[in-house]
Design a protein around this nucleic acid. Structure first.
Lengths: 142, 142
DNA sequence: ATCTACATTATAATAATTCTAAACTGTTGA
DNA sequence: TCAACAGTTTAGAATTATTATAATGTAGAT
């Protein structure tokens, strides 16, 4: 979903009703310079700051999942205890900063294309995800 | 932890007391031909089948985490809702079968070495993980 | 055999997420 | 314009995965 667009129209295009809550979520997620990585918790905090009226936690979950299904968001698995989402839905890889728990997009030029020599017989490849875990140089890591 | 070893000695070596429960868990995890991928739930089921006496859920969690800390197990993130563990602790990548929710080790020869051209400044790379999601060819996928 | 630190246990607590059922609201079309 | 319906939102309950607690048990040293 490109920034600066008419969110009402965009929502309608994929068959989602442009309700107040959904439009607000679009603004929070897509009216920004860079792609945005967040957990549900982050998003709830942001929304409750930026909205005058409150939004239900269940609505945030529903809406995030509706956006995900429609390809407006991508889920990233890093840590089994939290779901991270990414407003950049194109195929790309990530750095995960284990000090700050921050997720950072890789530029296409950062990582060479991953070459899969042999796939499981009878299956097709849906996606190839690379996660590079990084941390401060001067710190004990597991 | 190689199979066929004396688990009591192995546990002692890393400073874990070889209790009944821990030795039993070693047998279930490491007395097998191939590396083993499992969720806590899988393991609890297996243990309660193979043991005459019962084992507490909390003990399974504690012991899995003790093994992980000592390098006997590796945690794999695939899905934010479940923790998968792997008895193969060497650096290697995975296929994840989205039909069966099965995790499969990649052979070293299956995937070429991933070339990271540019890392985040001031950080060192802790690990590089590739996850290849696969599914049946004749099936609708997201 | 006894002691002590570490383990195990059942249960309670917490956290993340999903479900439920009632109230609400876009949208359609009369 | 407005009634009607289907999709949405909501608060709170339920569920699931995981961790904490505190009492009891046990391995290993003395």
């Amino acid at each position: 979903m490109p920034k600066n667009c008419n969110f009402i129209e965009k929502l309608r295009e994929v068959g989602l009703r442009p309700t107040k809550q959904r439009v607000k979520m679009c603004e929070v997620l897509y009216n920004r310079e860079k792609t945005f990585h967040f957990t549900i918790n982050d998003l709830v905090k942001l929304l409750s700051e930026k909205m005058n009226q409150k939004i239900s936690l269940a609505t945030v979950y529903n809406t995030v999942h509706a956006f995900e299904k429609k390809g407006y968001l991508k889920e990233i698995s890093i840590d089994s205890h939290k779901s991270y989402f990414d407003t950049n839905t194109s195929a790309h890889h990530h750095f995960f900063d284990e000090d700050t728990h921050e997720l950072i997009d890789c530029d296409e030029s950062d990582i060479d294309k991953v070459n899969i020599r042999k796939n499981i017989t009878g299956k097709k490849i849906n996606s190839v995800e690379v996660l590079v875990r990084v941390a401060s140089d001067n710190q004990t890591q597991k």
